[in-house]
Design a protein around this nucleic acid. Structure first.
Length: 567
RNA sequence: UGGGGUGUUGCCAAGCGGUAAGGCGACGGGUUUUGGUCCCGUUAUUCGAGGGUUCGAAUCCUUCCACCCCAGCCA
């Protein structure tokens, strides 16, 4: 066979492409926008950022980085009734934490209120906007339905002068909320309902978190967003699919005003199994006290997953892997966990913690003796070492002992020998129970020859257990988190709170190796054989650590046992 | 016959007329002082369905079906 003809320079692994990158590359190559690339991340400060936002942030900032452009952070703060500074602060904190930098380009739509007002006046002068005195109900009734056209407002043909006067008086505060509204004059019969004379300004005598009481009329999203993009010189205005119907309006406003027009491009928003990603639902979880707040480690908010122990690296990798497309899709939660494990497997120190302690007494180990072992923080990477004491009385995991071992169980059971990680081989000799028949202690013997975890005769043991010295262990609270919902698509339920997982949090009093005592809040490690944990950023104190489980390790044995119909 | 979108393996997702990438998952095997990691292998004769064009179609045409978005003075 002949070698296939390979073009020069091929076989270069190309960066993952998606239709947006391809489009920006096209525009850059063709010189559209002068080869410039400017994107923006435009959150409304009415809630905390979540994983869906992470996708958008990574997309927008990733795009500008790839094409040598910039990304602005712009708060879309046009509805003071819902917006708060707490949210703008959390948003900035989260974007930074995710690893992105807007440098000096921090903008607020509210900074453009005066210019926006000017554009509105211009549209009025061009006969493209009018003040409508109808009530909200009347406007709705006259909008028609999806299949029937709407009817023109009786105020639609007011003179430019009257419109100008009325609009100025709206701004001046002469009318109460809802009395009048400024509308674009487009087409009440448009098959696209968005174009049936959409509202541009509404009256709201509400204090704004930045402009205070300067304004009592506030622009609507469709009107404010396109002009904000235009003012900043954004080239590619990326948003989610549900705004596709609004694109003609986005274009219309800018064309009527005769100003620079960015290109809006829509992509499918992120959906994740076993969670909800809508602000309305998230805020409900917070308000109803179902979770402890926006940063509860079970929340899919960035502050929640951060507190849980996720890393920005894992999140960015996740956003890279899920891709960007236009088809509605739901990513499995398992992919998120995979990304965390992959990142932390490399970077997290290892430590030993016993979550559900079972006392083990080594009968032939000298009373009062202590082995001060020197263990590496990581089995492969050089991350330094720590001292771990070993003594006559230890704790092992209750799960690691079975009086009657199921098939395939190679942990500890009567007569069986296992390795205590890095320490000694021990053999179970006797099971001690209380009157009720509960196992309260194991009497074992150890092989002094096996120090370090291996023996001169090279005999193998199948199991290796983590352990902690009873006299030296520190007590600590450990929080075991699981999925917040029991169903893959809680949003599809009549009431999504009906499938809240009652076991999404289990609080344990665990025994930790002493080196963990000084863990700084936010510090992450792997508890060997258990999972990745993070010292809680709020409740953990050096000397009194509190650990959150971010993710378990993959559990092959657990899977086998489950198949066997085991516990 | 309201308009706008989308349908490729269990879940994401490439592909853009030349004979189905990749990731996650699953399954099997090897290594292993974490039943972890790592390594190797398997996992769509088929691209929502039917018809057509073509030497050749997931890619073009056509009919049909399913799902998503839009009737806030929310974004």
């Amino acid at each position: 066979m002949t070698t296939p003809d390979k073009a020069a320079g091929e076989a270069v692994p190309s960066a993952p492409v998606n239709f947006i990158r391809a489009r920006v590359a096209e525009d850059t190559a063709s010189g559209k926008y002068g080869g410039r690339v400017m994107t923006r991340f435009p959150p409304e400060p009415n809630g905390y950022l979540h994983l869906g936002h992470a996708k958008s942030i990574c997309l927008n900032f990733g795009l500008s980085k790839e094409f040598g452009g910039v990304t602005n952070l712009r708060f879309d703060d046009t509805n003071p009734a819902k917006e708060e500074v707490e949210y703008v602060e959390s948003i900035m904190r989260d974007v930074k934490w995710l690893g992105f930098d807007w440098e000096d380009r921090l903008y607020y739509a509210s900074d453009y209120f005066e210019r926006l007002y000017g554009f509105a006046v211009e549209l009025i002068k061009k006969g493209k906007a009018y003040v409508d005195d109808q009530t909200a109900e009347e406007i709705r009734a006259n909008r028609g339905t999806l299949k029937e056209p709407g009817r023109n407002s009786p105020y639609r043909d007011r003179s430019v002068e009257e419109n100008l006067d009325l609009f100025a008086r709206m701004r001046a505060g002469e009318y109460p909320d809802g009395a009048r509204v400024l509308r674009a004059k487009i087409d009440m019969a448009s098959p696209n309902v968005v174009l049936r004379d959409p509202a541009m300004y509404r009256i709201k005598h509400v204090h704004h978190h930045r402009t205070g009481d300067k304004w009592c009329i506030y622009p609507m999203y469709d009107f404010a967003h396109c002009f904000s993009d235009s003012i900043e010189g954004v080239t590619h205005s990326i948003c989610t699919l549900e705004f596709e119907n609004n694109r003609p309006l986005y274009d219309w406003f800018l064309e009527q005003a005769g100003v620079y027009r960015p290109q809006q491009i829509e992509f499918a928003r992120l959906n994740l199994t076993h969670t909800v990603l809508s602000k309305r639902k998230l805020i409900q979880l917070v308000n109803e006290g179902i979770t402890t707040g926006w940063d509860d480690p079970r929340m899919p908010t960035l502050s929640g997953v951060r507190r849980r122990g996720f890393t920005p690296e894992a999140l960015r990798d996740f956003c890279e892997r899920i891709g960007v497309a236009r088809a509605d899709s739901t990513v499995e939660y398992g992919l998120l966990e995979h990304c965390l494990r992959e990142d932390l497997n490399e970077r997290a120190p290892r430590a030993m913690a016993v979550l559900r302690p079972l006392k083990v007494v080594i009968e032939n180990y000298p009373e009062g003796q202590v082995d001060e072992f020197d263990f590496p923080w990581h089995p492969e990477k050089d991350m330094g070492r720590r001292t771990v004491p070993f003594s006559k009385v230890l704790y092992i995991e209750q799960d690691d002992f079975r009086e009657v071992p199921p098939k395939g169980f190679h942990r500890l059971y009567p007569g069986n020998e296992v390795r205590l990680r890095y320490a000694y081989y021990i053999t179970c000799r006797e099971v001690v129970k209380d009157e009720a028949g509960n196992i309260v202690e194991l009497r074992c013997t150890y092989d002094p020859e096996s120090k370090g975890g291996g023996t001169p005769d090279g005999r193998k043991v199948k199991g290796t257990l983590h352990w902690v010295s009873a006299a030296h262990a520190i007590d600590a609270e450990v929080r075991l988190y699981d999925l917040l919902f029991t169903k893959p698509n809680p949003g599809a339920e009549e009431d999504f709170t009906s499938c809240i997982n009652p076991n999404s949090l289990e609080v344990l009093r665990a025994k930790l190796e002493p080196a963990l005592a000084g863990a700084e809040p936010g510090w992450r490690c792997q508890f060997e054989r258990l999972g990745y944990f993070c010292a809680d950023e709020k409740d953990s104190k050096p000397g009194a650590p509190v650990f959150n489980r971010a993710a378990t390790l993959k559990d092959t044995w657990g899977k086998i046992e489950k198949k066997q119909g085991g516990k």
